[in-house]
Write a protein that binds this DNA or RNA. Structure first.
Length: 614
RNA sequence: GGGCCGAUAGCUCAGUCGGUAGAGCAACUGGCUUUUAACCAGUGGGUCGCAGGUUCGAGUCCUGCUCGGCUCACCA
């Protein structure tokens, strides 16, 4: 470690050598090459420093309106410049592209990360600032010399007056130039930016720079910066909506003695002073409900959860969750509230209720569909097996019958959906294909009959039926739920923290929101009977003992809290990362998390070690 | 963890049947005082992810490994 060199980080090649040489020459010319500040003008709004974006927004209206490929007339330019030339600005930014030098004058674009503005530098009248004294270097040609030592990516400050060029672009005619900071590493290609997803995620700073400097942008495509600005807007709007409706934000422990509130494997750590293991929380749920016991009627928490599970395009080990609880409300009121909150957030954060996500477009202005889980399975069964004669004879009542549910789950496992996807192929289905599907169906059906004894006994166990129902739902229905749809009436055994329905004791008052075949929110009427909660925890503990690592553990303090009385309440969790994916049209969670988890980079020295045999 | 695909100049990418490593952008030198993917002329730049193997000869074929992408399983 001690013999690490900066050369391991900044490689020695023609690009970096040129930049180092420029930096050394700049040091001779202006002194301190890492000055402490640059004071910008306040032309647009007194009290606020001018940014490149702000100057562009304020003065771009002076650009003559011209057709594509045309140039404005000298009269139009003269008219704009009469006003613009009176405005002197001091701006700072990053050099957004290699300077275009034409002998004794040059153009270059500056970027503030969001917007860009062109500056014009002329050998005859540009002056450099000495960074040690802060004074202008009066010697002839020094400003132009400084300009010549600038590279794509450097930060500079510039003072000058506004004008429009012969082609009609708003620009700054620079009179004084101050060097602010060097980009010693070369920036990505100005046209293509950076494509390697590994580089983009590992070095998000480069991704953000490249996205803002890239010239070749597709229409409607969000830059990485815009994705994260939208993420921020989504979070801001959700908070605002909840605050408006009387919720208060709370912070509950991230490090907890028990990993509770969800079914997941936790990260474990150790507290030295207490001498106990601690777990990174997998959900704040049980703490938030303790606050309902404590008398808060509306609470929310918007923060990170941690789960020690796989990493994929939809899973990051730490992810952001919004959870909130509403005393005296039930699951139906929560669905209404959730729907309106999402509709409002989409409208405010995206600026439109129409959202495109991959091949789908959603109209959030429309009421969300609502289906019970059984209705959803029955509907999708008819849709997916519409070309199988024997399948359409199955009626909805089958999905209320435990033995038949167990049988259908067995049948579906034997059939396998890989060979049969009528949803995808219904448009192209032919007579031969239909005949084949019917044969496959009949074969799997007969095959499933040989398991009937097993499925009949399975059908008498509530938890097994719950699993089979969920299996049918996930296999058949989930992929068909494209437009926003609430699914309600979840089997009770898979919902250990939710209250049973008053009309059907086998189902929980629980719902999930599906969009584009994926789950986006999970809410329920909260179980507040300590005796029943104790029993449900015990069931979970038994499942855990049977080897289910993700079954919940007993939380005695939570039972004690409920024993002081918790008001009836509804609660919900919404995954913010996935919600951001939906509203920014990103297919990977890594595109909406600034620094997603990746395997650590291996240094070359380490790879030279002989591989350990394992 | 399984399957499929990928890694070549700073960036984006070609590289045919196994026969001296290529382009555009970027960099460097010269020219050019309103350009805009500026232009014109020239120059330099490579551990072909890593380690083995086959071969007279490997970017190319084989094996192992590393990292990444997609996908399946688990999950939000």
């Amino acid at each position: 470690m001690a013999d690490q060199s900066i050369q391991d980080i900044i490689p020695d090649n023609d690009q970096t050598r040129a930049r180092h040489e420029h930096l050394n020459s700049l040091r001779q010319l202006v002194g301190n090459v890492y000055p402490n500040k640059f004071t910008r003008s306040q032309v647009v709004e007194p009290g606020h420093e001018d940014t490149i974006t702000a100057i562009g927004a304020r003065f771009r209206a002076y650009e003559p309106t011209i057709a594509e490929g045309d140039k404005p007339t000298p009269e139009e330019i003269e008219k704009a410049n009469q006003e613009l030339n009176k405005v002197t600005v001091r701006l700072a930014g990053r050099i957004a592209a290699p300077p275009r030098v034409m002998g004794k004058a040059a153009f270059v674009h500056l970027s503030d990360g969001a917007g860009r503005l062109q500056v014009y530098v002329r050998k005859a009248d540009v002056k450099a600032v000495n960074n040690d004294t802060g004074a202008l270097i009066e010697e002839e040609g020094k400003g132009w010399e400084l300009f010549g030592l600038l590279d794509h990516g450097d930060f500079i400050g510039a003072e000058g007056y506004l004008f429009v060029t012969r082609t009609g672009e708003l620009s700054v005619h620079v009179q004084t130039l101050q060097f602010l900071a060097k980009a010693l590493l070369p920036l990505p290609d100005k046209m293509h930016g950076i494509n390697d997803p590994e580089l983009r995620q590992r070095q998000r700073y480069v991704d953000l720079i490249a996205g803002s400097l890239k010239l070749d942008r597709e229409e409607g495509e969000l830059t990485p910066r815009e994705v994260f600005e939208r993420r921020s807007a989504i979070i801001r709007e959700l908070r605002g909506y909840l605050e408006e409706h009387g919720y208060i934000e709370v912070e509950t422990p991230m490090l907890t003695p028990l990993a509770t509130g969800a079914a997941a494997k936790p990260f474990e750590t150790y507290h030295n002073a207490l001498g106990i293991p601690l777990y990174a929380r997998i959900a704040p749920e049980l703490y938030l409900k303790r606050l309902l016991v404590g008398g808060f009627e509306k609470v929310y928490e918007l923060n990170r959860n941690f789960r020690n599970e796989g990493i994929s395009s939809r899973h990051n080990p730490e992810f952001t969750m919004l959870e909130f609880y509403w005393a005296y409300a039930d699951v139906n009121q929560m669905m209404d509230f959730c729907e309106e909150m999402i509709r409002t957030t989409v409208m405010k954060a995206v600026g439109d209720t129409k959202v495109r996500f991959g091949e789908h477009e959603f109209a959030f202005s429309q009421p969300f569909r609502r289906l019970s889980m059984r209705e959803a399975i029955a509907t999708s069964w008819r849709l997916r097996f519409q070309y199988c004669q024997s399948a359409v004879e199955i009626v909805d009542e089958w999905f209320d019958d435990g033995k038949r549910i167990a049988f259908l789950a067995q049948f579906l496992k034997l059939l396998g959906l890989a060979s049969l996807d009528p949803v995808m192929e219904q448009a192209f289905i032919g007579a031969e294909r239909q005949k084949y599907l019917n044969q496959e169906f009949a074969f799997a059906w007969e095959n499933a009959r040989t398991y009937q004894e097993l499925t009949d006994s399975r059908g008498q166990q509530a938890s097994a039926v719950a699993e089979d129902l969920l299996y049918l739902f996930e296999e058949l229905a989930e992929p068909t739920l494209i437009q926003p749809t609430f699914i309600y009436d979840y089997p009770k055994p898979i919902s250990p923290l939710s209250k049973a329905s008053p009309t059907d004791p086998t189902v929980a008052e629980r719902f999930e929101l599906f969009i584009a075949g994926m789950e986006w929110a999970n809410g329920f009427s909260e179980l507040n009977d300590p005796a029943e909660q104790f029993q449900r925890f015990n069931d979970q503990v038994q499942q855990r003992e049977r080897g289910d690592e993700e079954a919940m553990v007993m939380d005695e303090d939570y039972i004690r809290a409920l024993s002081y009385g918790m008001p009836p309440a509804a609660g919900i969790g919404i995954g913010i990362d996935r919600f951001t994916m939906l509203l920014t049209n990103r297919q990977s969670i890594r595109d909406v998390i600034l620094f997603p988890h990746l395997r650590p980079e291996r240094k070359r020295e380490e790879t030279e070690d002989p591989p350990t045999s394992e």
